[in-house]
Design a protein around this nucleic acid. Structure first.
Lengths: 244, 244
DNA sequence: TTTGTCTGCTTGTCTGACAACCCGTCTTAA
DNA sequence: TTAAGACGGGTTGTCAGACAAGCAGACAAA
């Protein structure tokens, strides 16, 4: 008590590569560097910033892992400005999950609530073209099923398409992140053709409810659907940690 | 059409530092390395992995920027295992915002929906101790206001405390991320004592509604509260981009 | 037109070097 | 006795130089 703590901010002891990294970041935010633009090669960057190449490399690692650039492999031209921040957010979300900060019950619950919100906006805003996309997605799943292939990817995409149709980027990011965890969990579990048929059937009925603008029905279907997915993934939860 | 495209997956050409980074990550996931443990020094790591120090450094940069380790500055001992993934997620979310992928209207809308969900779980699960924390938070805000200091930090914390009281880590992460954006936006706007009084008053009434287990009232108050915050931040949206 | 080869440049990695810096230890002075 | 100051070993941050692997475009050959 009594002693105020944040009076003296820490003197910023930034490392040079952090400074370089955030300078480049600012250039991107300001629009001076746009997606698709190419950065000079490492040697040139080193000269221009007046630092060593190792410093530049570490700065590039930072930018790369934050989703701002894409470093070409050996040989070809310099780093390219790209925007893959979303993928990086999802990856970190997955890391959180793997650090046991989230369990499947919490995940499903949150997913349910958030996707219900999404559904509301979807029912209000969905366009014909988006409906076509969803229909196409279901058709692709069915084609795979007919060949006895599990359409995992397509089933994940269905939910991402829904999020996109809400026209709210925040939902897109969050759903994308949650689905990354679901996708990861699904790869750990054996494939199951019968369940997949069920999943696709649910997706189809949900889409139908959306087309009918029947929000309540869509939400109910979604709830049953997710609870089923949860019970399917549940065994994973306890089966993990085989470490002594 | 006709030509299948994903038949040949790209030969994975992982760089050594990526390999090193993910090896260490796995050790953390497996529990072989726990939070607080110290990694060997860079030179020792280089020897043990049989690679150069530069490679180790780049691996450490990766781990650092993903929130797995904390590298001590010059001099003191080796890197320490830490878990600051959440902070990194928030930082990336903020980057998304700065890349104009999210605007304030979308943000507020999503925040409203998600915090309403949170409120529902809060009303069901909140404990006495959490109520005390929230009360304390409001009291602190009032103290600052009495000294004519804007309690920005406390006001942000209020919403984080609510999220925590939902007992769902997913909501915690999402709210944390959204509030990082709000906090950042608030620093760009001039302080406003009068508005702050209003904010704290809202928080107080929301807490009261929660204590009364009056979900509907709490949700209504939250909605008005957030819409007010939105209208306060709105000027920022158009005032940006002074670049020609 | 397609295929093979060559050249130059870029990235990935290693090695060696050194200043700045932290921490525990030892010395010294009050 | 104890507290302040000096010392030394170990560590990080950064630089410089080196070289193999690999790509891209030019050019030659089939």
């Amino acid at each position: 008590m009594g002693t105020p703590q944040n009076l003296f901010e820490p003197v910023k002891n930034r490392r040079i590569f952090e400074e370089v990294s955030s300078r480049i970041k600012e250039l991107i935010f300001d629009g001076a560097l746009k997606v698709g633009d190419k950065l000079p090669s490492e040697t040139q960057l080193a000269q221009q910033f007046g630092v060593g190449r190792q410093t530049i490399r570490e700065a590039l690692r930072l930018l790369e892992s934050s989703g701002f650039i894409d470093v070409n492999r050996r040989g070809s031209a310099g780093p390219v400005i790209k925007d893959t921040i979303l993928k990086k957010v999802s990856a970190l979300f997955l890391d959180s999950f793997r650090m046991k900060k989230i369990d499947l019950a919490q995940l499903t619950l949150a997913r349910l609530e958030i996707e219900k919100n999404v559904l509301r906006y979807v029912c209000e805003n969905i366009t014909e073209s988006e409906i076509r996309q969803l229909r196409k997605n279901i058709a692709q799943s069915r084609q795979k099923l007919a060949k006895e292939i599990i359409p995992t990817e397509e089933n994940i995409v269905f939910h991402k398409l829904l999020a996109a149709a809400s026209k709210n980027q925040v939902f897109v990011i969050v759903v994308e992140s949650l689905m990354a965890i679901v996708a990861d969990s699904l790869t750990r579990i054996g494939p199951d053709l019968k369940t997949s048929h069920n999943v696709v059937a649910y997706h189809d009925r949900i889409l139908q409810a959306i087309v009918d603008r029947d929000l309540e029905k869509a939400a109910d279907l979604l709830e049953s659907h997710l609870l089923e997915v949860k019970s399917r993934l549940q065994p994973l939860e306890s089966a993990e940690d085989p470490v002594a």
